[in-house]
Design a binder for these strands. Structure first.
Length: 601
DNA sequence: ATGCATCGCGCG
DNA sequence: AAAGCGCGCGATGCAT
């Protein structure tokens, strides 16, 4: 049974979805369901007002129901957390839109215009219903609201019918799973440790500011802090060229080399440097607070993930919470744990993008190294240094190999390679001369000549699609009409593809230009994402695992399963993740992972 | 007050 | 001619 529905709920200037997270909004004391529009299968849409909504919801057999909404994490959250009913399957037309039209607005209004450009009846009502801030609706307002709600439900249904044929079942299952992570939370939070962490952060930052004796405002502002360094300390504040605007801006970031150097040169100002750091690291405090606020009374926490946030299909964060970029050894991670009797399992696909790149580039030698379980970072470093490099004896040289493998495969140049090494993002900061950096880049490109060839191949094939009759199948991909169709039925979109000033150009939110290295990265990322989501579904659907996937972080899958016999569970996970797809049977995959009471690796 | 662009920084 | 790529959030500073 298909249940298309749309809740209309109280909102005012402060209590609204634009001001609050979904969690805070639905649990707000003023939250109230004004009514709900419900359509069962292709029957008529009915409006149920405030007094009828609960009965209408309770009369549906949710164990048999597939719910369809526009932005289902919201309506689904009301169903599961407010009405305590759980649909069998979640469909979200906003998510479908993001999948089919990456980078374009997924608002109901915009979806309608895009899907039905010539049908003026398929429009979201835009006359203003002034229900804002009216807690108890008068009959006329309620009737008007009900009318618009019915229109929205009908529109959602029409969008569903329009888009469903273009959506592969696997992606519908991923949308269902994404909604489930949010609407049926399984992870729990340790509030005490979060509160302790937050309060520690606040105390530490207050102490640092007091010790320095400078106003917080000055410390936190780049411009004001630069001025302070100049006039009060009598030093020259470091500057740099903005990578986006080209303007000269203060280089006072935590990782700005000139600034860290200045800190080393003037240790007598240590309290000031410490205070600057403390002020700038308030994110820990606010993040802890976000988690505390998001926690439900029963201890669970919803995982907000945005389906198809990136045009490559990768997920993103949302609801002011980004669980995909939590610092690795942060108390934030440790505060997320499994319910009693269960464990958190974390597994990731080792070097998935490097493997995918090697597979696409037909780099047989590299593929063989992966098959043999070789340390590819050390192997490349061996070529770079001209002597045997291994993980234990030459960690520094290996980092050079790692930086090379991760960046040079997508066209990174010598200057950028040099500065990346100098910043020391992946290991100890290293000094390379321009010539040395050039040497490494050349070594990489000649060692993996297939990669360099791949850049130009992909650029040429994509550029060829400017010609509408061009249609080529290659490596499970199809190049046609500004799109690179992926083997799972989705596609990379390069809208309005053209040459502008000699640059391959397309429209996303802004006008973008692209080139071989960038296209290669897009394809590699999109294909790697399919490997991960395919195994996510296998894991979720393997009844013997009794697992609930609760989070994914690009190459990593996080799930909760029973605590008994965890090694057997882990073994099955790894097996699921190492299964190559039908379109790349010869790609060597590897996965590793572990389990614990909490989400800590 | 609120929105937008920009930067910094965390993750992959 | 030359270019690692992909995200979201917090904070600042400026525009409205």
């Amino acid at each position: 049974m298909l249940v298309t529905l749309d809740f209309e709920t109280y909102f005012d200037t402060k209590v609204s979805l634009s001001k609050l997270t979904t969690m805070d909004y639905v649990r707000h004391e003023k939250f109230k369901v004004w009514g709900v529009g419900i359509k069962i299968d292709d029957g008529p849409t009915e409006w149920f007002g405030e007094d009828e909504a609960e009965v209408a919801i309770s009369e549906i057999d949710w164990r048999q129901a597939t719910v369809i909404c526009h932005n289902t994490p919201f309506d689904g959250y009301i169903l599961t957390r407010y009405y305590r009913v759980t649909p069998a399957y979640y469909i979200d037309t906003a998510a479908m839109s993001r999948g089919l039209f990456p980078g374009q607005s997924a608002r109901l209004k915009d979806c309608a215009i895009r899907c039905f450009p010539d049908d003026e009846t398929m429009r979201k009502g835009d006359e203003l219903i002034d229900a804002k801030g009216i807690y108890d609706l008068d009959p006329e307002t309620e009737q008007a609201l009900g009318g618009y709600c019915i229109q929205d439900v009908d529109l959602t249904w029409a969008l569903y019918q329009q888009m469903i044929d273009q959506m592969p079942q696997s992606e519908m299952d991923i949308i269902d799973l994404t909604c489930r992570m949010f609407c049926e939370p399984k992870l729990t939070v340790d509030l005490d440790s979060l509160i302790a962490f937050r309060d520690d952060q606040i105390a530490a930052s207050e102490k640092a500011i007091n010790d320095a004796g400078i106003d917080r405002k000055i410390l936190s502002s780049n411009q004001q802090f630069a001025e302070y360094i100049k006039t009060d300390l009598g030093l020259v504040p470091p500057t740099k060229r903005s990578p986006t605007t080209g303007k000269n801006i203060p280089a006072l970031g935590k990782n700005d080399k000139a600034f860290t150097q200045m800190q080393r040169m003037y240790p007598e100002h240590e309290p000031i440097w410490a205070a600057r750091k403390a002020v700038k690291s308030r994110i820990n405090e606010t993040r802890a607070q976000r988690f505390i606020d998001a926690a439900h009374d029963d201890g669970t926490i919803s995982v907000p993930l945005r389906y198809y946030a990136a045009h490559t299909g990768r997920f993103g964060g949302t609801e002011k919470i980004n669980m995909q970029n939590m610092p690795r050894n942060s108390p934030l991670r440790k505060a997320l744990y499994a319910p009693k009797g269960q464990l958190v399992f974390v597994a990731d696909l080792s070097n998935i993008e490097a493997r995918m790149l090697a597979w696409l580039a037909d780099e047989d030698d590299l593929l063989e190294q992966f098959r043999n379980g070789d340390d590819i970072y050390s192997n490349l470093a061996t070529k770079i240094y001209g002597r045997p490099i291994n993980k234990t004896d030459d960690p520094t040289e290996r980092f050079v190999g790692k930086t090379a493998v991760l960046g040079l495969g997508y066209g990174m140049g010598a200057a950028k390679f040099q500065s990346t090494l100098e910043a020391g993002a992946m290991g100890p900061p290293m000094k390379f001369t321009t010539e040395e950096a050039f040497d490494v880049v050349n070594t990489y490109r000649s060692t993996y000549s297939g990669v360099q060839l791949l850049w130009s191949k992909l650029e040429l094939k994509l550029a060829n699609t400017i010609n509408p009759s061009y249609d080529e199948h290659w490596h499970g991909l199809r190049f046609h009409r500004g799109k690179i169709h992926l083997p799972n039925g989705m596609a990379l979109h390069y809208n309005n593809l053209r040459y502008e000033g000699g640059q391959l150009t397309y429209d996303s939110r802004a006008t973008e230009s692209t080139w071989g290295g960038r296209i290669t990265e897009n394809v590699v990322q999109a294909l790697s994402r399919i490997i991960v989501t395919d195994s996510m579904l296998r894991i979720q659907q393997d009844a013997s695992l009794d697992a609930q996937v609760v989070l994914t972080v690009h190459d990593e899958i996080v799930l909760i399963s029973q605590a008994n016999n965890p090694d057997a569970t882990m073994g099955k996970l790894i097996a699921h993740m190492c299964q190559p797809p039908s379109w790349a049977k010869d790609i060597p995959l590897d996965a590793e992972g572990g389990y614990d009471f909490s989400y800590s690796k």
